[in-house]
Amino acid sequence: MSYEPPRPIRGLLLTPEDREAPARARRLCSLGLGERAEPALDAFADHLARLTGAPYAMVNFVGEERQFFAGLRVPAEGPPARADGTRRTELGRTLPREHGFCPHVVVRHKALVLEDVCDYPRFAGNPVVDEHGIRSYLGAPLIDSTGMALGTVCVADVAPRPWGRAGLETIKSTAAELAARLERRTDDGLPL
């Protein structure tokens, strides 16, 4: 019996090509975003977690090579253990661009609802599933007045979760609210 390696699945891009990435990186730099944690964005993420009942909430700015969580709320008890009892990696402020689901939201300029990531082969193999135990995701793009998606507002859970229409409307409205606040902040020179 011989072993034949699996053939690659044609057309299945795990991380979408992002032609806006260089322009987005310049725009984020001009807005002073995506390089440091911001207490106001941490508070926004905490509010979003309470609003949705999700253990994880993020304000994520997507650059050319990485994602940066300028706003982050993680559960105090840390990520769940793996089936073999070993601990998973704690979610930090940065992720490679090919990890997670936010790059898909940014490229598509549309909200993404994944009630159980394992139901979608395209997303089930994403490193955040194994490394951090993420099983469900809800995210919407932060679209500025130029029409550019700067990043996302998102929540995630370690269990499958029916986000429903209410969850979708909540994430979309909070993303629009935050995008407007970010631009007002830079226009007026005020903090969030």
Rank of each mutant, 00 (worst) to 15 (best):
G32W: 00
A37N: 12
C29V: 09
D84C: 11
G11H: 07
V117D: 11
K110M: 11
A57F: 14
P8K: 10
L142S: 06
G85D: 03
P16G: 14
D157N: 05
P79D: 08
L182Y: 08
A49S: 02
A176P: 01
C102G: 03
L192E: 14
R27G: 00
M58E: 00
G125H: 14
E4W: 04
V158H: 09
D119L: 04
F69L: 02
R165S: 06
F61N: 10
A43G: 15
C154N: 09
P79F: 04
M58V: 12
A176C: 09
V153F: 14
L33W: 06
L51E: 04
G133W: 01
H99S: 07
D116S: 08
C118G: 13
E98K: 03
A57D: 15
E65C: 11
F61R: 07
E35G: 15
C118Q: 13
R108C: 01
L72V: 12
R108N: 07
A57Y: 13
G133H: 02
E115C: 03
G92D: 04
R165C: 08
M1A: 12
R135C: 08
Y3E: 15
P75C: 01
F69A: 09
Y56I: 13
A159R: 10
V158D: 13
R10G: 11
K110L: 09
L12R: 09
H132K: 06
G71M: 04
E64D: 06
R7G: 06
T89W: 01
L28M: 14
D119R: 10
L72G: 05
A70C: 10
V113F: 00
V105N: 03
K110P: 00
A140I: 11
A175V: 08
R73Q: 10
I143W: 07
D119T: 05
P75I: 00
D42L: 10
A166V: 14
R82F: 05
S2K: 09
Y3L: 14
F123E: 06
R66H: 06
G151K: 02
A166D: 15
S173H: 13
A140M: 09
A156C: 01
I143R: 07
A43T: 11
L33R: 15
A83S: 13
G71Q: 02
H132S: 00
S2F: 02
P8M: 07
H109E: 06
R165M: 11
L48E: 11
D46P: 11
